[in-house]
Design a protein around this nucleic acid. Structure first.
Lengths: 215, 215
DNA sequence: CCAGTACGGTAACTTACCGTACCCGTCAAT
DNA sequence: ATTGACGGGTACGGTAAGTTACCGTACTGG
């Protein structure tokens, strides 16, 4: 009895996941308006009732897709506290994760569609920003403020510096990937990028030796 | 006789410009697929024959729009050589212009649509990148290499550093503007951002004093 | 074994829109 | 003044797509 109920629920979740996967492939490739429900169904079989029963409408499917994809991609950031080590280690770890996420095909697709549909789904854009890049900014700002309090760095505005740091990771390479002109970098190249970013940034914000030697 | 011909040509160019302006408003707001020719005509009056006579098709109108809008926005970068001053001045000037362009409503719209439609119009994405961000990278890389040859800076990879620099200008603030969550910064705030970026970057890449004092 | 229900497939309905054709007014040249 | 070309407005063909009505089916509970 209950087993059949849970079996049904499992099947339903399975269907839901299948739909979302196919929807991601089409929405993230073609954009919202150019994507047809038929195109999604053509990938997974079945009929449109599947989608309308589960998500109610095209908008419902799209918002569910973006929310869940963003959530999934971004949760890698939220797991544990990163600011516990020294600044170099924190920034490196931060950068590694951030770059990996930004270069993931999921987040590339989310970025493309969320930017494109920002005027049609403003609340989606807001939710995405706050859960992802906004939270990242907050976290990194806090890390920098601790370092500033310890006299390790010397910047007038930690938030601005934090935003510059994440910007360095979304540089022209990231833009080329977004534009489909290049594949995401291999792990080795990504590591080199993070090292370069952290090196320049750290040297750029570090307090002068005279100051850091004061304590 | 000839006066009427030139008058006609002027009128034609006027019409073309009017169409492009209205097309920009709609395409950049709604995206390619969601934009209807009727919506563009509704803004400027006239009939669709205007558009089809001038641009042939919806695709033709779109590619013409993106090409010309990008060209217009990006030509501010190409005017004169920037690397003639000292590095600080060059980077500041570079940053000022770049930030102004990236925050302009025109380029915000171009970025949104070019990213979204990259899979449908790959050659458009390529042309945009090469004329804009790619050229910027090249230019800045050259500036940095000159500075490195003079021993002013010390970085392993000037191109990578250049890309990081432009990335710093496209930080989370730029993302918020792209997502429609915030208006572009006022001139005063933009100046502060550029100053912060140049300060951190310059300090981050500057050669150690022991090295720069060697000559 | 039977009634009820919920789900899935077919297909139709309605709308939107690209691209084109037609009709009419306007304006210029002879 | 007449004629002809051009452009505005409208309507239409064809197609594509979002959404829903209808119906069969399979599974739940007694």
């Amino acid at each position: 009895m209950t087993s059949s109920i849970t079996a049904r629920r499992r099947a339903s979740e399975q269907r839901r996941a299948t739909i979302l996967k196919a929807a991601a492939a089409v929405f993230f490739e073609q954009g919202y308006a150019a994507t047809s429900i038929d195109a999604i169904i053509a990938q997974i079989g079945g009929s449109k009732r599947n989608i309308y029963n589960e998500f109610g409408s095209k908008e419902g499917l799209f918002t569910a897709l973006v929310s869940e994809a963003a959530e999934e991609a971004l949760e890698a950031l939220a797991v544990e506290n990163i600011g516990s080590r020294d600044l170099d280690g924190s920034l490196s770890e931060f950068g590694r994760r951030l770059l990996g996420i930004y270069m993931s095909s999921t987040l590339i697709g989310v970025l493309r569609t969320v930017m494109a549909e920002a005027s049609r789904f403003p609340e989606l854009a807001k939710a995405f920003y706050e859960k992802g890049p906004g939270r990242t900014s907050d976290r990194l700002t806090a890390v920098l403020e601790v370092a500033r309090a310890r006299g390790e760095i010397d910047v007038p505005d930690c938030r601005m510096a934090a935003e510059h740091f994440v910007g360095m990771l979304r540089d022209n390479l990231h833009l080329r990937v977004l534009l489909g002109l290049q594949d995401p970098p291999e792990a080795k190249d990504a590591e080199a990028i993070v090292a370069s970013v952290v090196s320049i940034f750290l040297k750029g914000v570090r307090a002068d030796r005279t100051v850091s030697e004061m304590h």
